[in-house]
Amino acid sequence: MSALVAFEAAARHVGFKAAARELNVTPAAISHQVKALETELRCALFNRHHRGVELTEAGAYLLVALQRGFEAMGEAVGQLRQNARRSSVVIRVTTAVSTLWLTPKLAQFWKAHPDVSVAQIVSDTDLLSTDCDLSIHYGVPPARDPTCRALFADRIMALGSPRFATAHPVRGVGDLAALPLIQFDSTQTGWTGWAEWFRAVGHDAPVQAAHRVNNYAIALQAARDDMGAVLGWVDLARVYLQSGELVPLLPDAVETGDQFYVRLHRHATDRSRLVHDWLLRNCQA
């Protein structure tokens, strides 16, 4: 094997000195290994001349075969390393869904399945990546895609802190439109904004957001800090509604055609399917 490695390096560099530098040995050691291989194969692999060496036809044939073999071995080793990293079930999810919905769910999951490790990749920009077993999305699940299953369809309400609600009494949609509004600017398409929400409740006047953030968890925090009204996906904001940190400013709730749904990626393991099925069974709990 060491002779094959030495030959491959010498053939790739078309020289013994460069191969020796790569393998951290002497040029004489490379030469010795190549000569031993030629003796074993009973054919010349290099034509040697005073300016250097060049591959013979047999040498070129062996180089191609070795490179294919090394590539296959490299891919196998890489796959095994990846599988070792995948001892955990990996879920890719946005910051908001992780903080407000998934992480509390996983606390319940681990009580029932303490032997199953679950890791999260939290990203607000790249949910289409395949370096995960499951991913959670917001929008319309792709039609006829068996890998995508709906988790829940959320309702959207205008929320604010109790102090903000007391300081800014809201008797109707017009009163709400005049208040400071916290706008969540998502890099993903499909998220409902204030303009869409007001249109859904019958208010077509222009709306201007006073505060813009690019993270939904921060938007909710800004509302809890009395900075303005925020659109609350009821299931995502449930912890704050139950604690009283946020309250509905109007009874109006908009139901969109969008849903939170989970995608099971094609390389998912039995453990991944266990987590996937558990989330589907307990998504409303």
Results as ranks from 00 to 15, higher is better:
256 T>D: 05
152 F>L: 06
194 W>V: 01
239 V>F: 14
153 A>M: 12
160 G>Y: 03
255 E>N: 12
259 Q>W: 11
179 L>C: 10
206 P>M: 08
146 P>E: 13
275 V>P: 07
171 R>W: 11
160 G>M: 04
217 A>K: 07
219 A>D: 03
259 Q>A: 13
233 W>N: 11
246 L>P: 02
186 S>R: 00
251 P>M: 02
225 D>E: 15
176 L>I: 05
148 C>E: 07
158 A>T: 00
156 I>L: 15
168 H>Q: 09
207 V>M: 08
256 T>Q: 08
208 Q>I: 13
262 V>S: 06
202 G>N: 07
191 W>S: 10
273 R>Q: 14
191 W>G: 05
192 T>P: 06
151 L>H: 01
196 E>Y: 00
271 R>P: 04
189 T>H: 14
256 T>M: 08
270 D>K: 11
248 P>H: 03
233 W>Y: 15
172 G>I: 06
254 V>C: 05
184 F>A: 00
236 L>M: 15
242 Q>N: 15
168 H>V: 07
197 W>K: 01
246 L>Q: 02
261 Y>E: 00
199 R>D: 13
157 M>G: 12
264 L>E: 13
179 L>T: 05
168 H>M: 06
222 A>H: 10
240 Y>P: 01
262 V>C: 12
249 L>P: 01
213 V>D: 01
209 A>Q: 02
243 S>H: 01
161 S>R: 05
263 R>G: 05
248 P>V: 03
211 H>F: 12
252 D>A: 14
176 L>T: 02
266 R>L: 13
264 L>V: 14
224 R>P: 08
161 S>L: 05
192 T>M: 14
213 V>T: 13
243 S>W: 00
229 A>P: 02
209 A>P: 03
219 A>I: 05
270 D>T: 12
265 H>Q: 09
159 L>T: 03
272 S>Q: 02
167 A>N: 12
187 T>P: 08
232 G>W: 00
179 L>I: 04
267 H>N: 12
197 W>P: 00
258 D>Q: 13
257 G>S: 08
221 Q>A: 15
177 A>I: 04
235 D>Y: 10
247 V>S: 09
200 A>M: 00
180 P>K: 03
233 W>F: 15
145 D>W: 01
238 R>A: 14
272 S>R: 01
266 R>G: 13
253 A>T: 04
225 D>L: 14
164 F>D: 06
156 I>P: 04
215 N>V: 06
239 V>M: 15
209 A>W: 01
172 G>W: 04
183 Q>A: 15
226 D>W: 08
222 A>T: 05
242 Q>M: 13
250 L>A: 03
223 A>Y: 02
159 L>V: 07
